[in-house]
Amino acid sequence: MRLRGIVRMWMSVAKPYSGAAAESLSRCGLRGLHMVLLAVLLAVLAAVPAGASLTGTWRLQLRDAAVVHGDMVLLGEIASPVGEMPPELWQQLARRPLWESPDKTGRTMSITGPRLKRAMRRYLPEHHRKCLYPASMAVQKGGGLYDEAALRKVVADSLTPRLAALEGEASLRDYRLPAFMFVEDPLNTVMLMTDDVRAGRLSLRLAEVRPTGDVVRQATGSVFVDVWTGVPAAAFPVNRGDLLGPDAVTMVRKNRAFMRGDPWDGKGGPWRLTRAVGQGQVIYAADLEIMPTVARGDRVDLVFRGSRILLTVPAEALADGAAGDSIPVRNLQSRRQVYATVKDPTTVIVQ
Rank of each mutant, 00 (worst) to 15 (best):
A150P: 05
T312V: 14
A79Q: 00
E77S: 08
G19T: 01
L318K: 02
G321D: 03
I349F: 05
P49E: 04
P102W: 12
H127R: 06
D64G: 04
F180I: 02
G5S: 11
P186I: 02
Y17S: 00
A135V: 13
R336S: 06
G113R: 14
G83L: 05
R217Y: 07
M193L: 15
G213C: 03
N188Y: 12
H34F: 13
G76K: 05
A234L: 08
V13W: 10
A295F: 06
R59N: 02
V67D: 01
N331W: 02
R31P: 00
V215C: 06
Y133V: 00
T55A: 13
V282F: 12
D157R: 04
E208P: 00
T57C: 08
R253F: 13
P328F: 07
L166H: 03
R240K: 15
R122L: 11
V190L: 09
D196H: 11
V231C: 03
R296Y: 01
S53R: 15
A323Y: 09
A39I: 10
A285P: 05
M11E: 15
F182Q: 04
F180S: 03
G268F: 13
V342M: 05
R152T: 12
Y339A: 06
A119K: 03
S203C: 09
P345D: 09
R162S: 02
W58K: 00
C131Q: 04
D344V: 00
P86F: 10
R275T: 12
M193E: 15
G200T: 01
Q92T: 11
P134D: 06
L124T: 01
R336K: 10
G321E: 04
T250C: 05
R335C: 02
A286W: 15
G221N: 07
P16H: 09
A285L: 15
L30S: 00
A219V: 10
K254F: 10
D320M: 04
S18V: 08
V7Y: 12
V216W: 12
E77R: 07
T194M: 01
S203R: 12
R275K: 15
S53T: 09
Q333G: 00
Y175E: 01
D344K: 03
L33C: 09
V190K: 09
D185N: 15
D196C: 04
T293S: 06
M11T: 14
V277S: 07
G261S: 08
G221M: 10
I78L: 05
A319M: 13
G70I: 11
V303S: 07
L159F: 07
T108W: 08
R217C: 07
G70M: 10
E316H: 08
F224C: 04
R296G: 02
F224G: 00
P345R: 14
L25Q: 11
P87A: 04
L145I: 00
L244F: 02
W58H: 05
V73N: 02
V197D: 01
L151F: 06
L89V: 11
R176D: 11
S18N: 14
A219T: 12
V231L: 07
K153Q: 14
L172Q: 06
V7M: 14
E184I: 04
R198C: 02
L243P: 05
E316D: 08
Q91T: 03
R176M: 07
A170F: 06
R118W: 10
Q281C: 09
V48W: 11
M181W: 06
L206A: 06
R335G: 02
K117Q: 14
